[in-house]
Design a protein around this nucleic acid. Structure first.
Length: 258
DNA sequence: ATGGCTACTCCTAGTAGA
């Protein structure tokens, strides 16, 4: 069982690369973020030809999440449904392959102290409430996506430069921990203690070839799934070459359920 | 070389991303 999370930075601009990656990696379930496309225009056919059901929650220009799955998903939930007046398409939840899958695109936050930063912290608090309301920590549950938070020094290419900055400020780390404290484990860290494992590199300044990256895309899994976890890897090669997303896919491989 | 921003919009400049 192969799960992928990938911020594609426009599924339309990235379609050729995304299709090529799906052919090569053949994920069973893939969560995409920043699709930047309205539902009416989602490239359903391109994924159908690859053998995937497409479930999506998008909007014009910004945000947007999608789940591609070999099996047809059930229990589709678009957005947190918590009454908060927030039109952003940033969360999509389904049941598929015997597990609950929550695909999230956490707000970027722009700058510490800005209104968008406050929105980000509130959004993460709402995510915890969404989990409390809809799931139990004992069930097979994966919450994955672009969290826009690097949890630890080893997840940042220059921790001193980034300390206190957006993506690496203490309130953001605390808000992410509140989400994990539902009963979820950072799957990559279950299998890999290395520093320098990054999932995003700025388009500017030659950040990728210089190794200037951050680990901000995560798989958070309940114990039931961690028990089946074989490996978590970052598909760094997908950041290379023409027209890359600024994020690389992250892959989690699970044993079949007992 | 893995390479120096990119994608979007009632578009050619401004906004947002991270």
């Amino acid at each position: 069982m192969k799960l992928v999370t990938w911020n594609v930075n426009s599924v339309r601009a990235r379609l050729e690369r995304v299709v090529a990656y799906f052919r090569k990696a053949a994920p069973d379930v893939a969560c995409l973020q920043e699709t930047k496309i309205v539902d009416a225009d989602f490239p359903v056919e391109a994924f159908r030809e690859l053998g995937y059901h497409a479930t999506f929650h998008g909007q014009k220009t910004y945000n947007g999440v999608a789940i591609l799955s070999r099996e047809a998903p059930a229990d589709v939930v678009r957005g947190m449904q918590d009454g908060d007046p927030d039109a952003d398409a940033r969360l999509l939840a389904v049941t598929v392959a015997g597990m609950s899958v929550v695909d999230v695109y956490v707000p970027n936050g722009q700058e510490v102290g800005s209104p968008k930063y406050d929105f980000k912290l509130r959004w993460l608090a709402r995510l915890r409430a969404f989990l409390d309301k809809n799931f139990r920590k004992e069930q097979p549950l994966v919450v994955c996506g672009d969290f826009n938070v690097a949890p630890e020094d080893r997840d940042v290419w220059d921790a001193e430069k980034w300390r206190g900055q957006v993506l690496f400020s203490e309130p953001e780390k605390a808000a992410l921990k509140q989400v994990s404290d539902f009963g979820l484990i950072d799957a990559l860290r279950e299998k890999n203690q290395d520093s320098g494992v990054y999932t995003w590199w700025d388009y500017r300044n030659g950040s990728f070839p210089r190794g200037w990256g951050l680990r901000i895309d995560h798989f958070l899994m309940s114990a039931a799934l961690i028990g089946r976890l074989r490996a978590v890897t970052v598909e760094r090669d997908e950041r290379k070459g023409p027209n890359p997303s600024d994020h690389a896919p992250v892959v989690a491989e699970l044993e079949s359920p007992a």
